[in-house]
Computed example of a mutant assay.
Amino acid sequence: MRRLPLLVCLALPLVAQAEDPTPEQPPAAAVEVIDAASTSAHSDLERRLAESEQQRQALAARLSAQSADRDNRQDEAAIGRLRQENQRLKLQLRETQSQQPPRLLTEQQTWYVTGGATAMLAFLLGALSRGSRRRQRREWIN
């Protein structure tokens, strides 16, 4: 009982595909009129397509030229601003350097003085740690 609706559902697509309707063919005179009209419409559409392609290419060329010109102007303006800022910063640097007092020692001289001070401190600590009395030879043997 349950299989019957299932079989009917499976058979419906087969029945629908089995029907092969034959297309009606229009008379030959109508086909020729339609072909002539479609040919003229087709050639008209091709001509309009070629014109619109030429217009599109002309507009694209003009647009790219305008955008390139606009980009060049923007780039030149940005370069000009950056040059002005660079000159202003150089001037500020020179002013700041002229206001600073000259350094007493260069970096190399500072390291040399630091090394000399360390050597003197080590010598003094060694002398102080030795003590005030001098060691005699017999103390060295032990």
Score class of each variant (00 low, 15 high):
residue 24 E to Q: 14
residue 24 E to M: 09
residue 24 E to D: 15
residue 25 Q to I: 06
residue 25 Q to E: 12
residue 26 P to Y: 11
residue 26 P to S: 11
residue 28 A to F: 07
residue 29 A to K: 09
residue 29 A to T: 10
residue 30 A to M: 12
residue 31 V to C: 11
residue 31 V to H: 05
residue 31 V to W: 08
residue 31 V to K: 14
residue 32 E to W: 13
residue 33 V to T: 14
residue 33 V to S: 15
residue 33 V to K: 14
residue 34 I to V: 15
residue 34 I to A: 14
residue 34 I to S: 14
residue 35 D to K: 07
residue 36 A to K: 13
residue 36 A to H: 07
residue 37 A to Q: 13
residue 37 A to D: 09
residue 37 A to K: 12
residue 37 A to F: 11
residue 38 S to G: 02
residue 38 S to Q: 06
residue 38 S to H: 07
residue 39 T to A: 12
residue 40 S to D: 04
residue 41 A to V: 10
residue 41 A to N: 09
residue 42 H to L: 12
residue 42 H to K: 06
residue 43 S to V: 09
residue 44 D to H: 02
residue 44 D to M: 10
residue 46 E to P: 01
residue 47 R to H: 07
residue 48 R to A: 14
residue 49 L to V: 10
residue 50 A to D: 09
residue 50 A to Y: 06
residue 50 A to H: 04
residue 51 E to Y: 01
residue 52 S to M: 01
residue 52 S to E: 08
residue 53 E to D: 13
residue 53 E to L: 00
residue 53 E to W: 00
residue 53 E to V: 00
residue 54 Q to V: 06
residue 55 Q to V: 03
residue 55 Q to R: 05
residue 56 R to C: 07
residue 56 R to H: 02
residue 56 R to A: 12
residue 57 Q to H: 03
residue 57 Q to Y: 00
residue 57 Q to R: 04
residue 58 A to R: 11
residue 58 A to M: 06
residue 59 L to D: 15
residue 60 A to N: 10
residue 60 A to F: 07
residue 61 A to R: 02
residue 61 A to W: 00
residue 62 R to W: 00
residue 62 R to P: 03
residue 62 R to C: 03
residue 63 L to H: 08
residue 63 L to E: 09
residue 63 L to N: 04
residue 64 S to P: 02
residue 65 A to H: 07
residue 65 A to W: 03
residue 65 A to T: 04
residue 65 A to Q: 11
residue 66 Q to G: 04
residue 67 S to A: 05
residue 69 D to N: 08
residue 69 D to L: 08
residue 69 D to R: 08
residue 70 R to P: 00
residue 70 R to Y: 06
residue 70 R to A: 15
residue 70 R to C: 03
residue 72 N to D: 03
residue 72 N to H: 02
residue 73 R to M: 10
residue 73 R to F: 01
residue 73 R to Y: 01
residue 75 D to G: 03
residue 75 D to W: 07
residue 75 D to N: 11
residue 76 E to C: 04
residue 76 E to I: 00
residue 76 E to V: 03
residue 77 A to T: 04
residue 77 A to R: 05
residue 78 A to M: 15
residue 78 A to D: 01
residue 80 G to E: 06
residue 80 G to D: 05
residue 81 R to E: 02
residue 81 R to Q: 05
residue 82 L to I: 10
residue 82 L to T: 02
residue 84 Q to V: 06
residue 85 E to M: 09
residue 86 N to T: 08
residue 86 N to K: 12
residue 86 N to Y: 04
residue 87 Q to W: 05
residue 87 Q to C: 00
residue 89 L to M: 01
residue 89 L to D: 05
residue 90 K to Q: 12
residue 91 L to Q: 09
residue 92 Q to R: 12
residue 93 L to A: 07
residue 93 L to T: 06
residue 93 L to H: 11
residue 94 R to I: 12
